[in-house]
Structures are given as C-alpha cells and as structure tokens.
Amino acid sequence: MKNSNDFTCDEARALVPAYLDGELSADRASPLRQHLMECADCRTKTQAHKAQRHWFVPTPEVSVPDGFAARVARRAFQGDTGEAPVTAEPLAPILPFVLRMTAAAAALLLVLSGVIRAVDVPTGGQLRADDGATMSLEEALNRLEAMDNGEGRPSEGLDR
C-alpha cells in the first residue's frame, strides 16, 4: 500500500523499531508519522512492537560483594590471569574424547583382525605338539631311533 507521499508500508515497518527507540532523525520520523496516521495496518504493527517491549522488565539488582574491588586489584597486581572456573557438566568435556578413543580402538581392532586373517598361520591339527598319545621316555627314544633308521615316520602324507 502506498500513501500520498509514496512511503510504503514495507518502508514504514522497517523504520518502526528505530522510531520507537527514539533513534530516527526528524527527516525520517516525520514521513513515518504521517504514514502511521494514514495506515491502520502499520499502526497495528507498531502497537505489536511496543507490546513486545513489555517482555524486557528490569532485571533485579545485583549487590556487589564487600571488598570485591580490593580483591580484584590485589589479584591483578599479583599477576592473576583470572580465568574463571567453569562449572561445566562433568561428562561434557570427557565424553567426546572417550567416544573418539573408542572409535579409534574399534578401527584398530578391525584392521588387526584383517591382518591376522591374511597371515598364513598353521591352525588346527598342524599345531599339535604331540600325537595325542602319552608315551614313556623309552618309547619316545625307540621311535626316534626308528626314525633315524628310516622306518615309518609318524607324520602323514609324505612320500618316501
């Protein structure tokens, strides 16, 4: 909508907050006031802007503790940097680190398992340290002697 002095509603609404803040110069405020007198819609919007200000009630005063200034000055001259302690959530700074480390460990285990699979290692029966039978020392020695003499080898699958 345009009024007689070509001041549009969009232009007016953009200026209303500054107008209500008392920040518009006279040459900008005057045409706006004229528009508001002629435009009911913009007057309604202006009222809404004014109403919103009621949300910003003055904050309760805070009393300054006794001796605050003296303490601060003393600490300043003692070289205190004054980093305020942070009462953060106890897990907040740790949790991301733990998650990252867990993910890294999982990735490492995955890689290692792949490497292990790829390596040709003997398994199963090939790893047997004995033939399953309990033998005495004498028997073991007899067997060794037989092996030395070329008699049957205990192992299978070998051609002689």
């Binding site: 904050t59 805070v62 300054v64 200034a69 600490r75 302690p85």
Partner: peptide
Amino acid sequence: QERLFALARHYTKNPVEIEDVVQESFLKAF
C-alpha cells in the same frame, strides 16, 4: 563494578558466576 555486575546479571542469575565473570573481565582489562 556495579554496572558490570548488572550486565552479567542479564546473562546469568547465578551470583557465583556473575562475580567470576566480572572479576575475569576486570583482570583482562588490567
């Protein structure tokens, strides 16, 4: 100090935090 306490009050209600940040502000300024 009063004005900075009032400023901090707009951001937190905790009096310990208010005192801490205002103190930190003055120490930074120093």
